[in-house]
Amino acid sequence: MLNPQWLRSFTVLAEVGSFTRTAEQLKLTQAAVSQHINHLEQQLGPLLIRRTRQIDLTPAGHSLLAYCAELEQAGQRLTLRLSGGEQSKGQVSLVTPGSSGLFLYPLLLELQSAHPGLAIHHKFAPDTDVLNAVLNNEYEIGLLSTKPDNPHVAVSHFAQEPLELVTPAGATVNSWQDLQRLGFIDHPDGRSMATRILSRAYPNAGGIRDIPVHGFINQVGLILEPVARGLGFTVLPRYARKAFVRNEAISVAEFDYTAMDTLWLIHRAEWPLSARAKYALDHLKQKLVNMELM
Rank of each mutant, 00 (worst) to 15 (best):
A171H: 05
S175Y: 03
L64G: 00
G117N: 07
E225L: 09
K27W: 08
L131E: 04
I141K: 03
A23Y: 07
S251I: 06
A133C: 06
T128Y: 09
L165H: 02
D210H: 10
Y202N: 00
T79E: 14
N136S: 13
D178W: 03
L179C: 07
F255G: 14
A259F: 01
L198M: 05
Q43K: 13
P151A: 09
A259C: 15
G190L: 12
A280L: 07
S99L: 03
Y105L: 14
A14P: 10
F233S: 04
R209I: 10
F184L: 09
G45A: 01
L263C: 08
P237D: 01
I55D: 08
Q219Y: 08
T79D: 12
A269N: 02
L165M: 10
H214D: 10
L281F: 05
D261T: 09
V220P: 10
R200D: 02
Y67C: 01
D282T: 15
A119Y: 12
K147I: 12
A228N: 01
K242Y: 07
G75T: 08
S156F: 00
M291C: 10
P46V: 02
D149N: 12
Q54N: 15
Q54L: 12
L65C: 00
K278G: 11
S251N: 13
H267M: 06
S88L: 10
T22D: 03
D129E: 13
I208D: 02
W271F: 12
S274K: 15
P126R: 10
I250L: 02
T11Y: 04
T20R: 15
L143K: 11
E164K: 15
V220T: 12
H62K: 12
L118K: 12
R181G: 11
Q5N: 14
S175P: 04
N247E: 14
L40W: 01
N3D: 14
A194C: 07
A159K: 04
Q112D: 04
N204S: 14
K242G: 01
L78R: 13
V220I: 14
A125Q: 02
D261G: 05
R268L: 09
G17M: 09
P46I: 00
H187W: 08
W6L: 04
P168E: 00
N132W: 04
L165N: 04
L40Q: 09
V235D: 05
R8Q: 14
L78I: 11
S192P: 08
S145C: 11
M1N: 13
G117Y: 05
V220C: 06
H62F: 05
L57V: 12
T96K: 08
T167G: 03
Q160P: 03
L165I: 08
S145P: 09
E161S: 10
R53I: 05
Y105K: 15
P106L: 05
V220H: 10
E225C: 06
T195H: 03
S9H: 13
T172R: 13
L107M: 15
V245S: 13
S156A: 13
A23H: 01
H152I: 06
L231E: 05
D149W: 00
V95E: 01
A205S: 13
L265E: 00
H187I: 09
L26A: 13
R181A: 14
A259W: 02
N290H: 15
A205T: 07
E140A: 07
G17T: 03
K89W: 05
A74P: 01
Y239L: 08
G61L: 02
G98C: 09
I223Y: 06
